[in-house]
Amino acid sequence: MRNIFLFIRRYFNLLFFLLLQGFCIYLIVHYNKYHNAVFSASANQLTGKVNEQYNKIEDYFHLKKTNDSLVKANEKLYNKLKADFQLPDTLSKAMVDTIKVDSLTQYRKYNYLQATVIENSVNTQSNFIVLSRGKAQQLKEGMGLVDVNNAVVGITTMVTDDYAVVMSLLHKDSHISGKLFKGGETGTLNWDGKTPNIISLTGIPKSAKVVKGDTIITSGFSTTFPRGMLIGFVTEVIPEKSTNNYLIKFKTAADFFSLQYVYAIDNSQQEAVNQLLEKAKQQAK
């Protein structure tokens, strides 16, 4: 027994060192998974405050750019106004209304919530974005995020009272499904952790017709993003030798280097769809 204590005293520093290293590696392995992307809410609150102060100053340097993109977004919205379209005259034709539902009330499915980016990184292999809007301001986990021009940015992974952490597209565990706008084939997005703004799309069969410059949009198969949100533009098409698929490299439509404002998309039907899925899974068991 005495020898054990002597041993511990003699090699205390080495043992302490190994213990700390072991703890670090445990943290790396354990917390890198999708849902545990952020380790503690308190650290998030503290660093969030510091980042917010810094962001107040940094915002001024991006004002012109932000303004330009907002004007562009406004232009797009103006062009979608109902007043700009002329409806065909339906009065001249007699029709029997068979729909039992009141067709005049509309149901809102998606709601956009504005949020400010207070921290954003692009140069690690797993990048996160921090927003200064949280649970107290209607943000939830698993919401899709788009920038001011409706280009996909990421998904919220952790929400505290006043802040939210977003796993950006530039994260090696981020796998959103994407679709070719022209052909409609769907695949999965992957980031290799090297060049920011360049992401690859896998799972597109070689039968698909893809050329450089094609548009990639969201598939709408998940509840996080509506169908047809812009993701990026194809820059390179590489046929995979061992499979029947293409590896498509594309440039993201969102500029991750200068994110200032984003919109979180609240899908009001998300809960209902997820409950249904749960039920289906339980029945299958």
Binding site: N13, L20, Q21, I28, Y31, F39, V50
Partner: peptide
């Protein structure tokens, strides 16, 4: 020194939202 290095690395990690990486390098 070891303990301080761990705390220091962990502080940077909490800004970068990847716990463990810098703490491990600092402790080493």
């Amino acid at each position: 020194q070891l303990l301080l290095a761990f705390v220091y690395g962990f502080t940077l990690d909490s800004f970068r939202h990847n716990p463990g990486f810098h703490a491990a390098a600092c402790v080493l």
